[in-house]
Design a protein around this nucleic acid. Structure first.
Lengths: 351, 351
DNA sequence: TTGAAAGCGCTAACAC
DNA sequence: GTGTTAGCGCTTTCAA
């Protein structure tokens, strides 16, 4: 493998000048730059990153801790982060955490730190209690409160709770007496936020909070929840914490002979590409994953490169309720269940 | 940041001994090892990877070129690779290629080479003509013919064509006169293989090959294809190259008043987690993504670490047709279209 | 079993 | 604009 001295020799310049050219530093004449580039090309030279990292103390790479799943949300964020990182010249190193892994996210962060990264992204974190490892690089937490022991922690993400509230209100506005919720696993902040938003929407209208069914984001868990819900004639509207579970719920409802949306309305969350094509097409809330990933990554890069400066202002990401055909007014016969509005402050499943 | 000399000083040994301990090298007494580990712990020492890479010439990392999409197949492979890599002690660096990107996969490979990786995985490659960059590390190509200019190329992947054939035969066995195919983008090897398998199944029974509709893997493209197909009363069986497109096809069929599976049967490919919960539950072919990723990665690591040795034998991954409710015998009235078996060798859309 | 010396290929700081 | 001199923190080689 050719080294920069080889290029320097061939171009008739010093090694440092080669370094200058490859780092886009100023003070290199056009002519010299051309000669260097030519020599490098001829030799098939590439900058050695390990040496560069060792000398500069920076790796120009960002570690991402993600879930080892193919779930649409986390995956979309990961892809968005990769794209944004590429635009800023950072490389991406990925480590998965498996749920239930003894080491957990801390183990993943640790292995990233071992590899050497300039910053860390924790995507869709779950609550694991206090973080154990000391982290000495900036951290971006996507979709969770900034509770991390690091020199610099930034967050990005939409307010899931607000979006959940919009979804619930859509159902309420349609005339449903109440809305049932199929929640995500409550160790996830995202799941908690959605539950909170749902609860808030209900509370704002003085409505009682029906029991919550908790799933694990999978369609299978939604299906299981749907079977429970289908058995209860009071249920006319369901808000599921993601589209997969919503689809599972619908399937269970259909199998139980409850029509969607005629008998029961269902709203999902995420707007996965499939949601427009399932039967019935799903009313859902669109998450701006790409925008969130990009904003977050820019924040992180800012924290890495300008540690002293103030972070850029947060951008308000758009909240979109996509109304399709899985929601409708409640069936007329459901009246017995109506009007039950006990102004209570039931706080069972609280964060 | 503490360095290995600091640990050495504190433990009262030489720096080299610290290095020995952290590399699990032999010839370190138990007592010394303990002292070193203790000192390291106390100091919060971590091995500096850049220095290690520079000195050893190996990065212990593997680069993965993947699509920037949330498509289930590619994502599952990526996750599987990450897991397998972690088990072998390699770190993962990810670079996306966006379809239509001018640089293409070559650009991605290039940036990986710049970063410095010991091996490269190309997941679900598309045909871009001859590869431009010279690659000097082993390459694993997942799901494509090994046509790459690298010192060592290994491949893994199931025979999509065989699986496509099984899917098509399932439909034929049900009594359908022929099977239509909604293909994936033909630049993808995976898409070509499936088309080939479908064609082979048809040819084996002396059947004519109906026109192919090409999609882009998305449910939306499946929907578009489905509208075309729905307009043709001859169509009673459709094999889509992935589940997303199959779901789009079903939606279009349903909207056109064609029942599934009563009027038209549809088979998908991949067995995405949702496919069991859409309506009707999808008959599909299960791809063993995890097994493929793991086998491939082991092959790659072998090629990295034992360049001279023979590669381990290929493992036959299981092919599973998952029969659910989107397939059934053809409706009785379709008879006019039956019995059309012109033994021809139509080779329109051939590779 | 352990240690000493010599780089790995680059960037940083400064001189010219 | 360009070159010189030191390291960055490890692994390698060889010696003890």
């Amino acid at each position: 493998m050719p080294r920069s001295v080889d290029v320097a020799r061939m171009a008739g310049v010093s090694q440092k000048t080669v370094s200058r050219v490859f780092n886009d530093e100023p003070y290199v004449s056009v002519e010299v730059r051309r000669r260097v580039l030519e020599a490098a090309e001829a030799l098939g030279y590439r900058l050695n990153n390990a040496a560069r990292a060792l000398a500069s103390g920076r790796t120009r790479s960002i570690g991402v801790v993600t879930l080892g799943t193919a779930l649409y949300g986390p995956v979309s964020l990961l892809m968005g982060i990769e794209r944004a990182a590429r635009n800023t010249g950072y490389a991406i190193r990925v480590v998965n955490t498996v749920e239930g892994d003894p080491a957990g996210a801390a183990g993943a962060v640790d292995s990233l730190l071992d590899q050497g990264v300039d910053g860390i992204v924790i995507s869709e974190p779950i609550d694991e209690g206090p973080a154990s490892t000391r982290v000495d690089v900036p951290v971006l937490v996507l979709g969770a409160p900034p509770s991390f022991a690091a020199p610099r922690v930034v967050t990005a993400g939409v307010s899931s709770d607000l979006m959940a509230r919009v979804a619930t209100e859509h159902l309420l506005d349609l005339g449903h007496a109440t809305v049932h919720h199929v929640a995500g696993p409550q160790r996830w902040y995202a799941a908690r936020d959605r539950l909170e938003g749902w609860r808030a929407a209900l509370a704002a209208r003085g409505l009682d909070q029906p029991p919550v069914v908790e799933g694990d984001w999978s369609a299978a868990s939604g299906y299981a929840a749907g079977r429970e819900l289908a058995a209860d004639p009071v249920v006319t509207a369901v808000f599921a914490a993601n589209d997969d579970m919503a689809i599972g719920v619908i399937r269970a409802l259909l199998e139980a002979g409850r029509r969607v949306p005629d008998d029961v309305s269902v709203v999902g969350f995420d707007d996965i590409p499939l949601s427009a094509f399932v039967t019935p097409p799903l009313t859902t809330v669109r998450q701006p994953f790409d925008a969130v990933a990009e904003e977050g990554l820019n924040l992180l890069v800012h924290a890495i490169e300008k540690p002293e400066a103030d972070p850029p202002p947060a951008i308000d990401q758009p909240v979109d309720l996509i109304v399709r055909s899985s929601t409708a007014p409640p069936p007329p016969r459901t009246t017995p269940a109506r009007g039950r509005r006990t102004p209570s402050s039931n706080r069972g499943l609280s964060r």
